[in-house]
Measured scan of single mutants.
Amino acid sequence: DLPPEQWSHTTVRNALKDLLKDMNQSSLAKECPLSQSMISSIVNSTYYANVSAAKCQEFGRWYKHFKKTK
């Protein structure tokens, strides 16, 4: 379990794929700090720029909290 400071584009993509087993992209976009188009691009590997470090950390913090509450 990585601390949010160490999250990267790959970590975010893997976490998104895991979350999308249980929910669809639009529900996920309402919950998490990423937009639906960004989620779609990341999981389909069409998001060519890497997600910014700040966004990765924000998502990492959100993901840890989300997993605790589920």
Rank of each mutant, 00 (worst) to 15 (best):
D1E: 10
D1V: 03
L2S: 15
P3K: 12
P3E: 10
P3R: 08
P4W: 08
P4F: 07
E5L: 06
Q6H: 03
W7E: 01
S8W: 00
S8F: 06
S8H: 03
S8T: 13
S8K: 05
S8L: 04
S8M: 03
S8C: 15
H9Q: 12
H9N: 11
H9Y: 15
T10E: 15
T10K: 15
T10Q: 15
T10W: 14
T10Y: 10
T11Q: 13
T11D: 15
T11P: 00
V12K: 01
V12C: 07
V12E: 01
V12M: 09
R13D: 00
R13P: 00
R13F: 05
R13Y: 08
R13A: 08
N14P: 01
N14E: 13
N14W: 13
N14S: 11
A15I: 14
A15N: 01
A15C: 15
A15W: 03
A15D: 01
L16F: 01
L16A: 03
L16Q: 02
D18P: 04
L19H: 00
L19T: 04
L19R: 02
L19K: 00
L20Y: 02
K21Y: 10
K21A: 06
K21W: 02
D22Y: 12
D22L: 07
D22K: 11
M23I: 04
M23P: 03
M23W: 07
N24R: 08
N24S: 09
N24E: 15
N24V: 04
N24M: 03
Q25N: 05
Q25V: 15
Q25K: 12
Q25M: 14
Q25R: 09
S26N: 12
S26E: 15
S27M: 14
S27R: 08
S27K: 14
S27W: 04
L28P: 00
L28H: 05
L28F: 09
A29P: 14
A29S: 09
A29R: 04
A29I: 08
K30C: 04
C32Y: 02
C32T: 05
C32I: 03
P33W: 00
P33F: 01
P33C: 04
P33D: 02
P33R: 03
P33M: 02
P33V: 01
L34P: 00
L34T: 01
L34D: 01
L34Q: 01
S35L: 00
S35G: 08
S35Y: 00
S35T: 15
Q36N: 15
Q36C: 13
Q36W: 06
Q36A: 10
S37E: 12
S37I: 11
S37Q: 14
S37F: 09
M38D: 13
I39H: 01
I39D: 01
S40C: 11
S40H: 15
S41P: 03
S41I: 11
S41K: 15
I42W: 04
I42A: 03
V43W: 04
V43M: 12
V43T: 07
N44P: 01
N44L: 02
N44Q: 10
N44T: 09
S45N: 15
S45P: 13
S45Q: 11
S45V: 05
T46I: 07
T46H: 15
T46M: 12
T46Y: 12
T46V: 08
T46G: 11
Y47S: 12
Y47W: 07
Y48W: 06
Y48N: 07
N50S: 10
N50Q: 12
N50P: 11
V51A: 03
V51I: 15
S52P: 11
S52Q: 05
S52T: 14
A53Y: 10
A53N: 04
A54T: 14
A54F: 05
K55S: 09
C56W: 05
C56K: 02
C56P: 00
Q57Y: 08
E58F: 01
E58N: 02
E58P: 01
E58Q: 06
F59C: 00
F59W: 00
F59E: 00
F59T: 00
F59K: 01
G60W: 06
G60E: 09
G60K: 08
R61E: 13
R61F: 06
R61G: 05
Y63T: 00
Y63E: 03
Y63N: 03
Y63H: 03
Y63L: 04
K64S: 09
K64G: 08
K64R: 11
K64A: 12
H65D: 14
H65K: 07
H65V: 11
F66Q: 07
F66G: 04
K67V: 09
K67D: 08
K68C: 04
K68P: 05
T69L: 11
T69A: 06
T69K: 15
T69C: 05
T69G: 05
K70R: 15
